[in-house]
Design a protein around this nucleic acid. Sequence first.
DNA 1: TGGTAGGTAAACACAC
DNA 2: TGTGTGTTTACCTACC
Length: 376
Amino acid sequence: MEDSCHTLPSFSSHPTTLKVSLPSSSSSPRQTSSRVTLPLSPISFPPSPVSLSPATAEFPHSSSPLSHGAASHCLEGQSVGQESLSDQNDLTCLSWLHQRGNLLPLQPLTKMTLTPQQESCTPAQPLPSPASSKPPYSFSSLIFMAIEDSPCKRLPVKEIYDWIVNNFPYYRTATSGWRNSVRHNLSLSKSFRRIERDKKQSVGKGSLWCVCPEYRPALLEMLRKTHSFHSTNSNLINKPALLGAACKAPEVCDSMDFSDPLSHSILLSSSSSHILTSNNPDFSENTPCPLTPDHEELVTMELTEYPQNEVGEDTEKDPLSDSGYIELHYYQSDQYQYLVLPDDTELDLETVEILQLDVEAQEAAGSLLDLAGGGY
DNA sequence: TGGTAGGTAAACACAC
DNA sequence: TGTGTGTTTACCTACC
């Protein structure tokens, strides 16, 4: 079992580095950094024009193997126009799709109703054979993930086909009608937008397709719901620290729905002066059973003052910070992720919910990418 | 029961 | 001319 607790705690903070637990899939020591942005307020939820990303296009190893061949589209995209360029830098960047190591494999597609304890103690079931079952995700979700997995967030339809085939072997053997459905979806759905290729650099037929930023939250939510429906216990397995933290507040714990990841974040926000650490042995990746409300002593939360010069040059002020958005920086070592907040940053409950929602979406979509390697 | 979303098939036009 | 791409329409099913 992987401990992928990369959930962000909530807090009101002065210039502070927050240390959060790092997914245990990080096998080798590393020091990476990336940054994310989110709106300060007001925040509508849902949907919200925001998606936090533990990594962005700046992420050093952001390119997924599945994104092969997309570099040419980056070049093309640079000449598409300002609108396209801004798309990949906007606040809804989802380069987390490239962080596949953080994510759990999708659970069996069987719809199950379990108690939290049952869920938390149910071992992962073998995944269905790769080509035997149709993915539960709509074509909109598949297209969304394909585009988001590309470095430049735009793909020609052919590479959308390729991405789907590479990630869902079901479509390797399926009749070609699904391609028609993909094109149909691209044309019909308002979520996707066609971008004319630069004729000078264009190789191949057709246009590039991207995700309309205003529809991205809805797509994310759809993805999250689909994943939540078809996964039995990833939420709990993925957030032992959160559950542990939750259980330190019994008054909230009693009313908490442990199957609802959002409730975790709400609870965490009540511990505004603390952060999570991953150095509790009970949260090791070998934890046989995720935490339950009975585990009240399992996590220690602390606030970490982190010298600014240790987190590197990426902490320079972001222009967006003056425009209603704050910038967060992630620094990742072999043990922790560090989240750096600018001065006077306050995260309200809704923001934290969005953070949590994004984590959920990461799991949902990222798990699909894991499937490409592990078999669907 | 009606509306909506999603999937599928088909036809057509256009570009390469 | 064949193939790929993009659009549109129609029909069906499932869900709310």
